[in-house]
Every structure is written in structure tokens, then in C-alpha cells.
Design a protein around this nucleic acid. Sequence first.
DNA 1: TTCTTCATGTTAATCGATTAAAAAAATAAA
DNA 2: TTTATTTTTTTAATCGATTAACATGAAGAA
Lengths: 339, 339
Amino acid sequence: MKKKVSLKDIAKKVGVSTATVSYVLSKGEESRVSLKVAEKVKKAARELNYRPNQIAKSLKSGKTFTIGLIVADISNPFFAHIARIVEDEAKKLDYTVLFGSCDEKADKSWDLVQFLSNRQVDGFIIAAAEGSEKQIEYLKTNNIPFVLIDRYFPEIESNYVVINNYKAAYKATRRLIQTGNSRIGIIAYASSLHHMRERIRGYKNAMEDGNLEIKEDWVNEIRFSNIKQEVKLAIDNMLLSKNKVDAILFATNTLAVYGLKYIDELNYKIPEDIAIISFDEGEAFDFYYCPLTYVKQPLKGFGENAVKILTDQISDPALKKEQVCLEAELIIRKSCKRG
Amino acid sequence: MKKKVSLKDIAKKVGVSTATVSYVLSKGEESRVSLKVAEKVKKAARELNYRPNQIAKSLKSGKTFTIGLIVADISNPFFAHIARIVEDEAKKLDYTVLFGSCDEKADKSWDLVQFLSNRQVDGFIIAAAEGSEKQIEYLKTNNIPFVLIDRYFPEIESNYVVINNYKAAYKATRRLIQTGNSRIGIIAYASSLHHMRERIRGYKNAMEDGNLEIKEDWVNEIRFSNIKQEVKLAIDNMLLSKNKVDAILFATNTLAVYGLKYIDELNYKIPEDIAIISFDEGEAFDFYYCPLTYVKQPLKGFGENAVKILTDQISDPALKKEQVCLEAELIIRKSCKRG
DNA sequence: TTCTTCATGTTAATCGATTAAAAAAATAAA
DNA sequence: TTTATTTTTTTAATCGATTAACATGAAGAA
């Protein structure tokens, strides 16, 4: 293994101390080094193809210019897109991104927090898993900067970037009502996470405001551990029971994908037999025989704001915590137009 | 900012030297420390919630347990899936993953190699961009371990994990022929990258072996810079000219997505008007009104092999370079069944 | 009693870069 | 020429953990 070139090598070559080399290379113009020596050092650095060892720098400075990104699953397009945006924004500020997928599990998330903390990341961007409150508190008490995205805990004061999930769900449901549906069900996750509760609340309130009754079996909460089966069951309960729905609101991309596949299997037609709206985008939604109306989340806004807030906070931990609530957009297509 | 707990703090608390603490905490059983002291140290470490500073470890050991993953775009599901697999495999071996997207551009890729090298990643997993040969040579001459995935350079001896693209394209084309198509076009990237050349070669040879002529306009090479427009143009040339095709082979997921959208716009029906096969999977392909026949690449195989080979190579740089060529599977559905 | 041997701890160097403080050299002032 | 001042360069400590080499003390052997 060819040893890397260090300050010492340059120093030896030029015949000065490593301190001098360091001053030339890191302090630029306002260095206290004579022009002649400075030139020689720069030349030597070029010739030896010197690359500063970021690890050594980090040890000295206590700063790694590294962000830890914790999401449920990096292969989920929702998070993959956010990751890309975070990457780009971070790069602009000379940060790199370490990522980890926690599969919506608090213990995995905790592992990742530890794992990445040991690697001295300067801060975290986290799409929090259910039950991860203690981790968040841990970060707070240890003064490790972090920004929550997509989900947050109302009872914990922190930086976060989210959307108004209540409003988004409300609008989606109202749209279903306005397009002639009155028997509307929802498929969401069985999660205490605030964003999920808000989506369900938005749906319920929209129904109420439309003077529509919500029958038993219409509010379905699916567990992460068994999505496919439980989605089927939920749809069976909504389509094959006496309380048959005429529209379904899916609370996430993943739920919609499973749901639509099963609805296709059952040979129900959208929007004639059932109207559909889903949260999140997806190539699949464009390609579906009936392009889906969906709630478009501002992924760019998530990523950009999160990186901005986090890096500001890293530079100055005394800054006030920032809360950003963005608006989601309802992209209207054909899946809820009836009659 | 609450200062982190270091060996020194434990040493002070227990009243021993940092060396002793280090021996207890890092050498486990075969430490030369008395049981009594060892217990006290462990207790103190627990009480102070000591977390070793990975950066300091890295500086001393020259090893960061970090892998740099360079792909075209982490938000592309193909790469996002690979990233997830790489993450999981890496984690098992206590490695973390730093990722970067190069957008198929050699200069961006070079930036990333530098950027991540400065951060002392132990090695790279790279889906190489066109024209990145020099970077690969750079890594070789600097003895930085790396594994190429998805694409490789036949003229450069290196580790790689790829599929037999020639065979995959050949089989796909032959399938189109066998299902009654004879006027078959291909949409691929205008790239000198070997995997792309092989896909085109596979197509051509299959046509030849089927005694089928390849007309002008049937081999379309699209530039990354202008995918959408050029795909349209290619399809215009293949569907609206006198040399109308009856089938199209898409060389990647992305090309197929743009292509199918335009084909829908033109109101051509699949498979009645045109038969289709694409490389790569995609939720979209499942949801298309006519589920797509596609070439399924072994993403798991890419990720698992790459991490295995890379980490082996990191542990023992003298190891012989490994080349893995996996088989792709043709998933047969409805998009190429005609008549 | 004296010399080994072994168990247990400590000292100090190291990884590579930074930086305060000291030292040396060059220049200006007296 | 001598002293004061400024410029340039070096020394050495530091970040946190590791580890070779050395030190200490006690038990066992002769």
C-alpha cells in the first residue's frame, strides 16, 4: 500500500517545518510565511499530489463535515429522492452524507444513531420511527444537532421540516367528496406517529364537515410488519362487505401500491367502481391505466430546508430551533372523477 | 456543547492510565489487566456512557470502516436498491456507506473520488461513468481498493460484479422474435460504456441469428443530456416512418419510462401495436395496463458480491482481483405476446 | 537470601493536521 | 553599533485512541 502524502513529506522535501507547510496550505493569503517559501511549499504539494487527511483535520477540529441521514428505507423512492436532494445541498457546503435505513424500527434507528455518532457526524437529518422519542431526547441532551423531516414529535421542541398533513388529507378527502363520493375509506398505518394521526384526522374531519358518516371498517390501520396481507384484508372489508365504499384514500405510496394491485386482482375498475387518491408520487401512479390523483409532497423543500437548518445549527448551536411546515399539493388527475 | 467522554475521563475517574483503560475496553478477555481494575473501568465506562471516538481510532489505524458508493443517481430506483443492499451488507461487517451521485458524468465522479478519498474511505463501490477510466487507473496506482458494479472496463484489470449484458439482450431480443415480431428496434444510450455496447451487440446478433434485417433508424442511441426529447424522436423514427417497427427493446428503466409515456401519448397499444421488453424492474412496469416483460438484474447479487469482494480486498490488498459475472433473468409477462 | 519469572501498570510515541507560544532572523530605529 | 521592532519559522502541545517498550512488585525457584 503506497503511503499517503502528508504534511511531513512536503516539509521534508522543502526543508521547513510542518507548521510552515500547514500555514501556507490552510491559511492562504493572510499567512505569515514569506512568499518565496510559500511558493516552494505549494509547488511541492502539487508535485507530490498532496491531499489533506480529513480524518486528522476532524480529530483536531472536532468537526467532520458529515451528516447522518436516517430514513425508513433508502430504497423507497420517497426517501431516495430526499436523499438525493440532501446529498446535493450538503455537497454545496462541503458536507458528505452517511445514510442508514431503520425500517421504521426504533431499535434499528437507535443503533444507527449510536453508530453514526461514534463516527462523529456533525448532525442528523432524521425521518423518525415510531417510538424513537427517547433517541431524540438523547440527541437534545447531548447537544447533537438534528433536524426531523417528514415526521416530528409535537411534545418535543426540535428543528423540523414537515408538511401540514391534516390539511393535505382534508383536501384530498374533500376532493373525493366533491367528485361525487360519499362512502370513503382510508388505509393508513397503525402508527402513533403524529403525521399519520394527522392524515387520519384530516380524513375524518373532512367527512364530518361533509356530513358523511364513517362506517366501521372504513378506517384501516395497517401494521408495517404485514403490509401486504393487511391491506388485502382492509380492502376486502371495504369492498366486499355490506358497507361497501366508493372511494379509498391511501396514506402512503407503499400502501397504494399494494392496494391497487389487489384492487386490480379483484377486477374493480378505477374510477368507475372505486375512486382513489394517494399520498406521495410514484412512476407507478403515472402509468396506471387511470393516472392517480395524489398528494404531492415537497421533497425538495424537505431536503433543502433540512440541510440549511442543520448546517446553520452546526455552525451556531445557540441558534433558535426552527420549525418549517410546508404545504402539500393535490395533483388532480383521473382517479377520482366519477359519474 | 457538552464535551464527549474520552478514555482520559474514565482513566481519571478510576485512577489509572489511559493505556489501561484502552486495554480493558478494546482487548477484551486477553487483556493483561487485573480483574478488579477491569471491572472498575468497565463500570466507569458504563456510568459515563463512554463511546469510543471512531475518528481517533481511524487516524491511528488508518482504517475508517467506511465505504464510498458512487452511482449515477441515488434517487434512481436501480441504484437506490443497490444502495440499500450495500448498506445492509456493509453494516453486518461494521462498515458505513458514504454515497455520491455523479449523474453519469466523469468529472463529477472524479470530484467524488477525491472528496471521499480525502475522507479516507477504505474503498469504493462504483458504477462507473463513461470516460472515468483514468479515475479507475488512479485508484489502482494508489492502491485504493474498489469494486466496479453494473459496468466495467474490459481493458482495465479490476474487481467487478456485472451481468452478462450481451446474453441478456440477446435473450430479450430472441424472445421478441419468438413471439412473432420481426421488425425490432432498440433504444439505448449513446455511451461507449461496455455494458451498453454489449446490450446493443446482443440485440444485433439476435436479429442476425434470426435472419432479420436491421433497418436504419432501428438502433437508437440517446444522450443523457436530453433523454426525453431524443426518446421521442427515436420513437417517431421507428413508428411513424416507412420502416415501422413492431417491437422495441429498451436498454434501461429510465428509457422505458419516457418511451412508454410517449407511446401512450401516440395512442399505440401494447402489445397489439407494439411489443415491448425493457431492462430493469420498476413498479411502473407492474402497473402498466400491460405488465411489461423485463430483464431482471440481480441487484442483490451486485450488492452482496461487491461488499464481500471489497471488504476482503481491504483486509488483504494482496488478494487476486475478482470478477463476477451474474446472469440476468427474463421475466416474461404480457408485453411481447402478439397475434 | 538472591535471582527469575510473571502479572499488572505506566510512559511515551504514534497517526496527520492545527495553532499558540517561543525562537530566530531580518529590518528599522536610535 | 546597539537596541527595538517586525517578519518569518520552529517547537511543542493538542485532538483521542492504540501499543511497543519499559517499570514495578510479588510469587516462585535455587
